[in-house]
Design a protein around this nucleic acid. Structure first.
Length: 579
DNA sequence: GCCGTTTTCGGCCCGACTGTTTTCAGTCG
């Protein structure tokens, strides 16, 4: 957990340096921060194993930042950071989340009005005290108030699973216009990040006016922030902003590349361009004044001597080096059509909405080969968890259903699993004898989330040693925007998963997405097998699988890494490997 | 503060917009 803490500290130090108008250093600290956040190993372990040299190998970490990391590992604090905190005792990260405020303005607000947090800020703005400050005005004051309101309402980010359907609907409507020649959504939505700040559309059209008119008067639009020939910006009823930009056909590819991001990816790309004596911006890739690429995105990457990089992995997490053929190759990312089944869903046997038959029918319509029913077990009374006897009864129903399917000449099969509860000591709530009669069992932590890290890790590893438990569900327990995951040593969990041949789940519920992208990448590095599961509680939820798929693509997963891309026979053989 | 095969000093992505100014600083993506 130190990595994240240090990443936050360095990010804040960058803010402080910006306040003091110190050039370039903020950039260095932000880079180190980003690098730590995405590190697959904990810094204290690196330091213990390899000492200072190990820290020095972390990109963006040099002498001075290594010193600070060591200081923190050894003393639990960083002196220079504490001094900054004392000098600028305001809630930087809290206030900075207000749109339009950066470190410098925040410093002015503190020094002139003693504003220390969002509450102070709101009060001063409401009392009209801000408008009189140099470089502030009535409009800034008003924007601050609106910014605070927005923050309170939305906390700034939205789940991809809530936004994407809405955006796809708007895209479809815009596509229907005869004036629209090309359209794409870009930004973090195109990269399929788990949470989204806002949405951007890019459009090619000869007649921007009717397109903008149509866009700004969509029924879901509740406010028009601005409307012009090249850019319009609206708020939709769900509370997020959508921008639409019109770009010339010849710049469409470079604009798409630029507005898709990530920012870090783009910075790196521009550096590569400049090393080749080229200049890259949203209008194209230029050699001197001549545009050598821009019309489509693939040409940009190609002209820079790179393989095309799928949007989901454009995070400057090594994809650029690989695409440049410096080492390795880009992964051939898993696709939705590769998915052959779903092994984590719930039926009406434990209080779900739909019968096993209805769930199976939906799975058949999706083109799946198999569906695993994995209802909760008895410890979860609130979910009507099944006991050994009920599992046996359910088995009969599933067998009858499979016979019927066979008669209909369908190759589709329903499997019986269950979702066990990992008790405090790592045992589970169903007897082995009953587990032996199922095709597989999933196990997950559903209670006592606040256990200390060591105990939680041992708890989960003990469950993985159970030969009947083939899959661990939602391995970190996090719920987006609501709760952090449990304290758990994932490196140990990954190692144990590999040793015990236990599959880890990528739970595709939009608010879970657990494992997440970073942990998927780490798990794959450890040689762990993964599965994407919808955890559907009703038949419609089976389509959540795509959010897990996006997440696994962001984690560089290939088809071979994801076991529910395997045909049934191979999957069952895999289960037998562990026994 | 970091980085490096034109490197151990000198450069660090870049353009647009906003709100404040009256030529620009700060912020954003």
């Amino acid at each position: 957990m130190l990595n994240k803490k240090l990443a936050d500290i360095f990010y804040e130090i960058a803010d402080f340096l910006e306040i003091e108008n110190i050039p370039f250093k903020p950039y260095a600290y932000r880079r180190a921060s980003e690098s730590l956040k995405n590190l697959s190993e904990e810094v204290e372990i690196i330091y213990k194993k390899e000492g200072r040299a190990g820290l020095d190998n972390i990109p963006g970490v040099g002498e001075s930042i290594a010193d600070k990391i060591i200081e923190y590992i050894e003393t639990g604090r960083i002196k220079s950071y504490q001094e900054y905190k004392k000098k600028y005792p305001f809630e930087m990260r809290e206030i900075i989340s207000v749109e339009g405020l950066g470190p410098r303005k925040i410093k002015d607000l503190y020094q002139k009005l003693k504003i220390k947090n969002l509450k102070d800020l709101k009060k001063s703005a409401q009392e009209g005290k801000i408008r009189g400050l140099p470089n502030f005005g009535v409009k800034t004051e008003k924007n601050i108030l609106e910014g605070i309101k927005f923050l309170n309402k939305s906390k700034g980010r939205f789940l991809l699973g809530k936004i994407l359907p809405q955006i796809e609907q708007i895209e479809k409507k815009l596509k229907g216009l005869k004036e629209v020649k090309r359209i794409n959504v870009c930004g973090s939505i195109r990269r399929r990040k788990e949470t989204i700040g806002d949405a951007d559309f890019l459009v090619v059209t000869d007649k921007p006016n009717p397109v903008m008119d149509f866009f700004c008067s969509l029924p879901e639009v509740v406010k028009v922030w601005g409307k012009g020939e090249t850019k319009s910006s609206v708020r939709v009823e769900q509370g997020f902003n959508v921008d639409l930009r019109v770009v010339p056909e010849g710049s469409y590819g470079s604009a798409l590349q630029y507005f898709t991001g990530s920012k870090e990816h783009n910075i790196q790309l521009r550096i590569i361009a400049s090393e080749k004596g080229l200049k890259l911006n949203e209008y194209g890739l230029f050699k001197n004044k001549k545009r050598i690429a821009g019309g489509n995105e693939k040409d940009i990457y190609e002209s820079l001597g790179m393989d095309y990089i799928p949007p989901e992995i454009r995070e400057n997490e090594g994809e650029i080096e690989v695409a440049l053929h410096s080492f390795g190759r880009l992964p051939k990312l898993v696709e939705l059509k590769d998915i052959k089944g779903d092994l984590h869903c719930h039926s009406d046997w434990n209080g779900g909405e739909n019968s096993i038959l209805e769930m199976a029918q939906t799975a058949i319509n999706k083109g799946y080969e198999y569906l695993g029913i994995s209802d909760h077990t008895k410890f979860l009374k609130i979910e009507n968890g099944l006991d050994e006897k009920q599992l046996a009864q359910q088995r009969k129903e599933i067998e009858r259903l499979n016979v019927k399917l066979k008669i209909q000449n369908s190759k589709f099969r329903v499997l019986q699993g269950c979702e066990l509860n990992i008790l405090n000591d790592g045992r589970v709530d169903i007897k082995d004898e009953a587990l032996g009669k199922l095709e597989y069992a999933i196990a997950g932590v559903h209670s006592n989330f606040k256990m200390p890290e060591k105990e939680m890790t041992e708890r989960m590893i003990r469950a993985m040693k159970n030969p009947y438990i083939k899959i661990i569900s939602h391995p970190t327990g996090r719920i987006l925007k609501r709760r952090e995951g449990y304290q758990i040593d994932l490196e140990k969990v990954f190692r144990a998963a590999k040793e015990t041949k236990t599959i880890l789940e990528i739970n595709a519920q939009p608010e879970r997405l657990d494992l997440n992208d970073i942990n998927i990448k780490r798990a794959l590095k450890s040689g762990v097998r993964l599965i994407i599961d919808s955890d559907a509680h009703q038949k419609e939820d089976l389509s959540y699988i795509k959010y897990g798929l996006y997440q696994s693509r962001r984690g560089w997963a290939e088809k071979r890494n994801i076991v529910n891309t395997f045909p049934l026979k191979k999957l069952l053989e895999l289960f037998k490997e562990k026994s």
